[in-house]
Design a protein around this nucleic acid. Structure first.
Length: 511
RNA sequence: CGGAGCGUAGCGCAGCCUGGAUAGCGCACUUGCUUUGGGAGCAAGGGGUCGCCGGUUCAAAUCCGGCCGCUCCGACCA
């Protein structure tokens, strides 16, 4: 049992915070609601960026960067949008500082028009798109930006809800509604595949109800994940914005028939919240567990020895193991670069995205085991005198705590990649099985109430109605997470109104 | 913003009610020795304007007033 991490069964929210702290992913900052993402946590974001960015490029998007500050007047232009975000905007009203009579610095000159710190960038993208788009030849315009945004939340939780967070936001403009809708669905698929293949996180693709959709959107699609405590997490959204923003910002083009038309636009995003989802999907009472594709540090080699003589033999052997895993070239580069360090980082590839560390710190091997375990490294290579004698080592796999006795002779980079692939897939299957086991179907409101309290996704026939949703939320705290894209077909009776409906929805308690 | 609680070393806490000596304990950290295949032991050491401002008093971590901050529960939310 980890002594610095409370058990999930005892206090799940505290467990979540303990895992983050033990793994050194993030820390509270002196600024209300804002976190510091520490190197080991930021490495997760970098990995997410790397993989997603590749997928965005592969689907024809380009990156750009827009300003952090947005004129307040921009927000006013789309009625629903301003209503949705007004309460959580941070506002910049002054420039420059002066020393006040009390000796403290204070704001000096008031701005002619205040700015908001972007809560999202539809408005400023809209403003620029109106200038860039003249003709159907300029379409589609497919731009993404990696940025920070700020939403002045009442209550915050590390990664899941912070006042400032990192995300990407794609903003696209199209000739036709159909093209824009296809784009919206395409990016939803990109997110779902990314969650599956990279984060090993199963998600349900679906559409948001009217009351849950993005302010200003015609349709909002979502990927919903299920956390170990049975609560749902919205892990990514993709919005079909119709012509709402193109009309608000005058994004017009001349079509092929020389007629002036408003564009059809989309936006889509995922945030550092994914890291929270990653933690709550895979980790256990011993701490963080990372899927191998996400882990910047794939594994740690921990030498075990008693005497100085053993130490020298074991460490020499560890280096042979590292050469086999990562290649002699990478080992030599690491030994040279880190020669004055206690931890040697050997990259497994030329782009230096993943590494295996050799832990040469003084101290007991068992403490090193816990150290790397809590940080979620997928693999640990234990090498002691017995292993040196046998030309072998012990491979510990983090996610299932399995122990395998391996021979040095069988190890090469392909062997490692195969381990990565196997574990990655096994972690997805485990999470998928969990999600399925926690998804139930109910046929009455009473059953819904009971099922929702037990945790998990609750599937049922439902006739969409904002008032009913509000009442159910009031009575059960559960919300419609989504109307899944996969439907059984046919019709059923709404569990609340008894009306005939074609749609099933997923209810759940949510983060 | 409503309800509750808490601010004492990096973290977790005791001390406060009933004012008084050098402010204490555990973890963590530093050094040395012994240990080392699942959270070791001994020894020495470093680290505090007791959240801030004011008041009462010979004397305040302790009593009184005000302010600030944080956490939890609600409303809001990627």
């Amino acid at each position: 049992m980890a002594k610095n991490i409370v058990a999930r069964s005892k206090d799940y929210p505290q467990w979540y915070l303990d895992v983050i702290k033990a793994a050194e992913l993030a820390d509270y900052s002196p600024v209300r609601g804002c976190m510091v993402i520490r190197p080991h946590g930021y490495a997760l974001w970098e990995a997410i960026q790397r993989d997603l960015d590749r997928r965005f490029k592969a689907t024809g998007h380009q990156n750009a960067y827009f300003p952090l500050l947005i004129p307040v007047s921009f927000l006013e232009k789309e009625a629903q949008h301003v209503e949705g975000f007004a309460m959580e905007c941070a506002v910049v009203t002054h420039s420059s500082l002066k020393k006040g009579e009390d000796g403290h610095l204070q704001a000096r000159s008031e701005l002619p028009e205040p700015f908001v710190v972007r809560p999202t960038s539809e408005t400023i993208f809209g403003h620029m798109y109106a200038q860039w788009i003249q003709s159907y030849r300029d379409l589609p315009l497919l731009i993404n930006q990696w940025a920070n945004v700020m939403r002045w939340e009442m209550r915050t939780r590390l990664f899941l809800r912070t006042a400032e967070f990192l995300w990407q936001e794609g903003h696209t403009a199209h000739e036709t509604a159909q093209e824009a809708q296809e784009e919206t669905r395409r990016m939803l698929d990109v997110y779902a595949q990314f969650a599956h293949q990279f984060l090993a996180m199963p998600v349900v693709k679906g559409r948001k109800t009217e009351s849950e959709k993005f302010p200003g959107a015609v349709t909002t699609y979502t990927i919903e994940a299920l956390m170990q405590d049975g609560k749902a997490l919205q892990a990514g959204t993709s919005h079909f914005l119709g012509q709402n923003f193109s009309k608000a910002f005058d994004i017009k083009y001349l079509d092929r028939g020389n007629q002036l038309q408003h564009c059809w636009t989309t936006s889509w995003g995922v945030s550092t919240r994914l890291i929270g989802g990653l933690i709550m999907t895979h980790s256990d009472d011993e701490g963080l567990i990372l899927p191998p594709r996400v882990a910047s540090t794939l594994g740690a080699v921990v030498p075990i020895y008693r005497s100085d003589e053993e130490k020298e033999q074991v460490i020499t052997y560890c280096k042979r193991l590292l050469a086999a895993l990562c290649g002699e070239e990478h080992l030599q580069a690491a030994l040279e670069r880190d020669k004055n360090r206690e931890i040697i980082s050997v990259f497994t590839d030329h782009s230096a995205t993943q590494k295996i560390v050799l832990d040469l710190r003084e101290g007991r091997a068992v403490e090193k085991h816990f150290h790397w375990e809590q940080r979620g490294l997928p693999f640990r290579f234990e090498v002691g005198p017995r292993d040196v004698a046998n030309e072998a080592f012990v491979l510990k796999t983090r996610f299932d705590n399995s122990k395998e006795f391996c021979k040095l002779a069988e190890v090469d980079p392909q062997w490692l990649q195969k381990k990565v692939q196997t574990v990655q897939e096994a972690m997805y299957q485990k999470a998928l099985q969990f999600q399925r086991s926690k998804t139930v179907e109910v046929e009455s409101y009473d059953q819904l109430k009971e099922a929702v309290q037990a945790g998990g996704f609750v599937r049922c026939w439902f006739h969409e109605d904002p008032q009913v949703e509000a009442q159910i939320k009031e009575e059960t705290k559960a919300t419609v997470r989504c109307i899944p894209l996969e439907q059984p077909g046919g019709v059923g009776k709404c569990i609340f109104s008894g009306r005939e409906t074609k749609e099933q929805v997923l209810f759940a308690l949510a983060y």
